[in-house]
Computed example of a mutant assay.
Amino acid sequence: MGLSLQQFVMVAGAHLLALLSPGPDFFLVARSALLRGWRKTGAVCFGIACANGVFIALAVGGFAALHRHGLAFALVQAAGCAYLFYLGVLMLRHARAASIEAHVQDGSPATQTGAWHTRFAMGFASAILNPKNALFYASLFALLAARDAPFGAQIVYGVWMFAAVFGWDLLVAMGIGHPSVVARFTRHSATIERTTGAVLLAIGASVLTMLAREWL
């Protein structure tokens, strides 16, 4: 398979640095963990990981069609901005001082079944509409291809990165969604909602500004 330990360390290190850079996905995970606890946030984390898996599969398969100055990339950026604006406005409009512990302890089957799909979809949409994810994996696997990394090794790297995304986001959720942390923020759920909404709006506005400067 030609798996090089030195190359694996390079790939894993670059991916770790990318994970440590906070973006929309991080704020969604943090918000969900504080409002619902880390167990229910697992669906958001899995959605984010699956979206990353799509980009990884496309990059490994050589279908990285998104280029920084291409129309497809601009359209993905615009769609991502629209989604961030939608989430931000939604959180600002519906922010209220609800009991976080009630959300965490809610065990009704209907809530668990419907909410899991909603949380998964939110995480998946956030990550799949983030053009930075597409660029990162396209650039990384293009570099690996240029260095003649075997296809089998690239698959191993891809599986590792999928697991790393899911594991890292779940670790963040577990840390933020710990019962003691959740209890501390119980009375501030409205502030958490408004802050997250404002951050998502700010990120969307900054990306939209750069997009307008480039194309207008």
Rank of each mutant, 00 (worst) to 15 (best):
T113P: 12
T113G: 07
G114H: 11
G114Q: 09
G114W: 03
A115S: 14
A115K: 13
A115F: 05
A115R: 09
A115G: 13
W116Y: 01
W116V: 06
H117R: 11
H117I: 05
H117T: 14
H117Q: 08
H117L: 13
H117M: 15
T118M: 13
T118Y: 10
R119M: 09
R119C: 02
R119S: 07
R119L: 13
F120G: 04
A121D: 08
A121N: 04
M122G: 11
M122K: 03
G123E: 05
G123S: 05
G123Y: 01
G123I: 04
G123C: 01
G123N: 01
A125R: 10
A127E: 05
A127T: 07
I128H: 06
L129I: 02
L129F: 05
N130S: 06
N130P: 12
N130D: 06
N130R: 03
P131V: 10
P131F: 06
P131I: 01
P131C: 08
P131D: 05
K132E: 12
K132G: 15
K132P: 01
N133Q: 13
N133H: 15
A134I: 13
A134Y: 08
A134D: 06
A134N: 03
L135A: 15
L135W: 14
F136E: 11
Y137R: 09
Y137V: 10
A138H: 13
A138N: 02
A138W: 09
S139F: 05
S139P: 02
L140Q: 02
F141L: 07
F141G: 00
F141Q: 02
F141W: 07
A142K: 04
A142P: 03
L143W: 10
L143Q: 02
L143C: 01
L144H: 01
A145Q: 15
A145D: 13
A145Y: 14
A146I: 01
A146G: 04
R147N: 14
R147G: 02
D148R: 14
D148N: 08
D148H: 07
D148A: 15
A149I: 00
A149K: 13
A149R: 10
P150E: 08
P150A: 06
P150F: 07
P150Q: 03
P150K: 08
F151I: 12
F151W: 13
F151A: 15
F151T: 14
G152N: 10
G152A: 06
Q154M: 14
Q154I: 05
V156N: 09
V156T: 00
Y157T: 00
